[in-house]
Computed example of a mutant assay.
Amino acid sequence: MAFVSVSEVKPGHKIVNDVHTSFGSLLFPKGKVLLPRDIEILHAFLIHEIEIEDGTNEDIEKTIGLGSSRSSVRLKQPADKSAVTAQKSSLIRLHDEYDKMILLMKSAFQSVIASELSIYELRNQLESLISYIQHYNILTFTPRVINEYDYIYHNAVLSSLTSYKIAGWIGLPQKDWIQVAFAGLLHDIGNTKIDPAILYKPSALTAEEIEEMRRHTTYGYQLLKNVTAINEGVRLAALQHHEKVDGTGYPLNLEGNKIHVFAKIVSVADIFHAMTLKKAYRKAQSPYLVLEQIHSEAFGKLDPSIVQTFISKVTQFYNGTIVRLSNDQIGEIVFSDRSHPTRPMVSINGNIINLVQDRHIYIEEIITK
């Protein structure tokens, strides 16, 4: 074993001890066999020396596909064609069920004032949609057709799917997941009682209009008060999803321990989709920038444990994910520091950009996983 300057490290060397970044995060675990790109990462993190096993291991080099030239890494074999076809088919079905859910939500929201909510029909379609939840990726899923004036329905359905996932991630009993999905689906149903001229107004609202918009929370609770097949958590999510844990939210200025967990979950999902969906008066924002804003909101506004879990789960992409940056460059994620999950290291034509250091650049969209 010997300490070696990173400038002298070669592909195929095995690390003896864990290598950490200057922030204390684990960069590479002990026992890792270094690839050419790993050496680029060591340089990017300004690591000066590491401890490696003595000598060169020819078997290791062959295993990782370096060969005598040490210049290339063996590419992954293409996935089984039948598996790829099945995955594409399931994704198409997810979109089909999503589109059906949007149409049903339009009908339900347009008729709820005059008649009872078709809750059992909504539940059947919601269950059909959720049967494909494993193919729903929060950061990458994009509806096939988005009419900007249908924002309220897309936000509802996306918030439903995302809330369902968050419920599982934070450890709620599985029997509650469908009710949390209902909470996401119906949290903005009170908007059906808001004047469309206010709801879709492209310019800034007046103080009176803001007050009217805020009433959608109480309107929602009233509309759901006598609906069967949903529990009180669903009703309270409609009422409380704009409450903040520091007591600065509305309509009741509740503090964290008085806000129902369903409302806390829906609040995170609603904010994410409200900012990443295109509206009539505002373009969609980068999901990674939105995650950073949600992270900042966790300090005093949103439930910090839910936010931390949400961000950690949705940013768990494997190295090799292809992304487009805000400067329109296409690159590949080569390292993700869990201390900065929204700002991984991205390789572009052999040059590594550390988004933690280059704060003016961010991930605009994920192209492939």
Rank of each mutant, 00 (worst) to 15 (best):
E292G: 09
V180N: 09
L117D: 07
K100G: 00
Y362G: 06
I170L: 15
E292L: 04
L35Q: 13
T315P: 05
L46E: 15
I15R: 04
A167G: 11
D96R: 03
K165H: 06
A238I: 00
A79Y: 06
Q134M: 10
R235H: 02
T140K: 15
T368Q: 02
I64Q: 07
K81E: 15
L223F: 00
A86G: 07
P29R: 08
S7Q: 13
E116Y: 11
L355R: 01
T218Y: 10
E127A: 05
L117N: 07
I189R: 01
D270P: 08
T85W: 15
H43M: 11
I333E: 03
E212Q: 12
D96W: 00
R282C: 03
S71P: 01
R215S: 12
T206Q: 13
R343I: 00
T63Y: 14
S267D: 01
H273F: 15
I102E: 13
S128W: 03
I306F: 14
K301F: 10
I259H: 12
S267Q: 10
I152W: 04
D188E: 09
I133Q: 08
V4G: 01
A79R: 13
L325R: 10
T63H: 08
F3V: 13
T321G: 05
H216K: 08
F141W: 13
H340C: 09
G300C: 12
I352T: 08
L104W: 10
Y221F: 14
D195K: 11
I230N: 12
M1H: 10
E209L: 12
N226E: 12
L26N: 05
K100E: 10
I15T: 03
G55I: 08
D18F: 12
S118G: 10
Y362Q: 01
D59A: 06
T309K: 05
G65T: 02
I361H: 00
V307Y: 07
V290R: 06
